[in-house]
Design a protein around this nucleic acid. Sequence first.
DNA 1: TTACTATTTGCTAATATTACCAAATATAGA
DNA 2: TCTATATTTGGTAATATTAGCAAATAGTAA
Lengths: 117, 117
Amino acid sequence: MQINKNSSVIDRPGLEARALVIKAMAHPTRLFIIEELSRGKKCVCELTEMLGVDVSTVSKHLSVLKSVGIVKDEKKGLMVFYTLIMPCLLPFMNCIARVLNQDETTSVNPCSCNNCK
Amino acid sequence: MQINKNSSVIDRPGLEARALVIKAMAHPTRLFIIEELSRGKKCVCELTEMLGVDVSTVSKHLSVLKSVGIVKDEKKGLMVFYTLIMPCLLPFMNCIARVLNQDETTSVNPCSCNNCK
DNA sequence: TTACTATTTGCTAATATTACCAAATATAGA
DNA sequence: TCTATATTTGGTAATATTAGCAAATAGTAA
């Protein structure tokens, strides 16, 4: 996403930057990666095997996460290990998961997850 | 986004559903709307005036947020008021904002926002 | 009824995202 | 050096998202 793509976009400070971080999370494969990395660092090859998609696809997803500061990478020999460096994403994902598990009433009743109380 | 678009997508339970909620947030205009609604319900016309974009654009952003259960709507006369029903999104957004405000070191150092501690 | 206002919906062009293949790069070991 | 492995990068086709216009819908009031 481009920053300030045109003048009609509201530019409340940090809005576009925050949207970039959230957009980086907004893909099932990248959510999976975030969850896996929350259990500890993993190399690209491990994630690729778990995901069952092309390694170049995994690499690009990781670069999206890295570009917004959600993960960092670290080279060891031939392998590159990725680490989650923004763990505050996890309680948020759990909150969403709890809300979604409330079956059919989810979309009309106020959120009742722990964070929302 | 389609659910289970093909067989190579990992189907850890709830992954796609969570991605849909996060994707609904992943736009500067919708983040703005979420922030504004966190201060209280607002009608489409109020949001439209604040945003300075076409009312149909605002209406469509609101329908994205509604479809995943982030907001609910309520008709009063000619006007439709929207209410935030998933306030647990706010601490998450604050966390991201704090991380982003840590200037140039953000993308290489572990998150140190309150949630991540 | 007609007129007016608020909102939603249908449509379209512009833009962005995605997955994969193929090629490039980087590192290790023989 | 040559070979093999791990990862990234470039390119491309398919798909998805977006904004705004125009038209449709819904509610109010004369």
